[in-house]
């Protein structure tokens, strides 16, 4: 099937294709650049592109969450990690020598993921327009049906907090 030139393709579809391309490019770039600070910048862009995709898919709350948690907090955390582990912020990463097992695995993974995409992509019968949701109904589901999961998530976060403090505390060798 032709990817472009189809008269049926709408503006939203064009936007989707563009944002997807941005996401793939920024993701790849963030892993390929030699400078860690540039990596952070690329990944921040990636997060923003994804947030835009979420808005496009009628999930505005998730989009906001993506912006706040990922583009904001996670990016800052990663930057903080870079800052405290380096004497100079802009220093180049040593050339990445490749180990044979990872390369083989990555190759296989790429093949299989492609196969999966084709396989699943062939499934037809999905509705033709995205289902919009009120954020309030999402909130009701989240604090109603999924209340226990939210509690569990909170507990995991508490545990992670305690673990993180334990890991970085002074005097530990």
């Amino acid at each position: 099937m032709p990817l472009l030139g189809d008269s049926q393709v709408s503006l939203a579809d064009w936007a989707f294709l563009a944002l997807g391309a941005v996401a793939v490019v920024t993701a790849a770039a963030s892993l390929l650049v030699r400078e860690l600070v540039h990596t952070i910048l690329w990944i921040a862009t990636f997060f923003v592109a994804l947030a835009a995709l979420y808005f496009l898919l009628e999930a505005p709350f998730l989009g906001v969450l993506q912006l706040g948690v990922y583009a904001g907090a996670v990016t800052i955390l990663l930057l903080f990690g870079v800052m405290v582990t380096r004497k100079r912020i802009f220093s180049r990463e040593a050339a990445t020598g490749l180990r044979p097992a990872p390369i083989a695995a990555a190759g296989l993974a790429a093949v299989v993921v492609g196969a999966v995409a084709v396989e699943v992509g062939g499934v037809a019968g999905l509705p033709s327009s995205p289902q919009p949701y009120e954020t309030t109904s999402l909130s009701a589901a989240l604090f109603g049906t999924y209340g226990p999961w939210l509690w569990l998530l909170g507990l995991v976060m508490m545990a992670a907090l305690a673990g993180a403090i334990y890991l970085v505390r002074e005097g530990r060798e």
Partner: peptide, 23 residues
Amino acid sequence: GVVLDYTAYVVAGLVVVLVVLLV
């Protein structure tokens, strides 16, 4: 002892599962 090698095995395992499941 290298984490990367272990991840490679995990990925390989994932590949095997996917191949079994889908092929």
